[in-house]
Nucleic acid binder design. Structure first.
Lengths: 125, 125
DNA sequence: CGGTATCCAAAAGGATACTG
DNA sequence: CAGTATCCTTTTGGATACCG
């Protein structure tokens, strides 16, 4: 999550850089995109995303919830059931990261060509 | 730069996630936005951005250059002079991150309100 | 099930000294 | 000036064990 453990966040930096880091963080991006397809339970998200530890998923969800991007609905049943969904703010954020993600996907070919050119230029000692 | 030291980059992850991390990295964002205003020398960028170490700026620029987003023009003079500018690909990337940055700036008020509400809800032991 | 707490390994990143 | 190389601190993130 780019920031130590949320509780602090007391560095010296323009505040919106932090939000930017939350939504573009490794797991933040994936959570936002998954949730933009509809509400998910904790374990559904965990499976859908793949190799994410409970700790990181929890941390990511809490940060996004605190920022008002994700809504957490805990049903007081046994066993516990918690559903996560996007708020309106979260839907907007998700659209933005989707746009960026889509762009990188589309332009990946160009990037890889550039990398090959770059690498060759210096491998040719 | 989110990834160890570029040279490796050999983890297990869809490749475009890496590009996404490069352009949204702490310094990547700032470099792209600065360069979208026009070419800059190394030291100009350093001053314009503020508290960035030489190491991180160099690393960021090299990564973006390798990805084909930034063009590096080194003039063979003494003392050395190196100008950096965006490629077409880089301009596209810069536009995307600008959009995201602008969004976070505009919605910062909502985010901060959400945070206060969140924090109060649990400070009220 | 949906977390929290703790511990530890790995990676990011800054400071400093040095070079063409 | 524009880096590179080295060292060292901070942050990140995974594994594990436990709780309501």
């Amino acid at each position: 999550m780019a920031v130590s453990d949320r509780v602090s966040d007391g560095e010296q930096m323009c505040p919106h850089r932090l939000v930017l880091e939350h939504v573009t963080s490794r797991w933040g991006v994936l959570v936002l995109i998954r949730l933009s397809e509809g509400p998910h339970r904790f374990s559904e998200l965990r499976r859908a995303i793949g190799r994410v530890s409970e700790k990181m998923l929890t941390q990511t969800l809490q940060t996004l919830e605190r920022d008002g991007l994700v809504h957490r609905h805990a049903k007081p049943v046994i066993p516990p059931r918690v559903d996560y969904s996007l708020t309106e703010l979260g839907r907007e954020a998700a659209e933005q990261v989707r746009a960026l993600a889509t762009w990188t996907e589309q332009r990946m070919g160009d990037v890889q060509r550039a990398r090959r050119a770059y690498d060759e230029a210096r491998t040719a000692s």
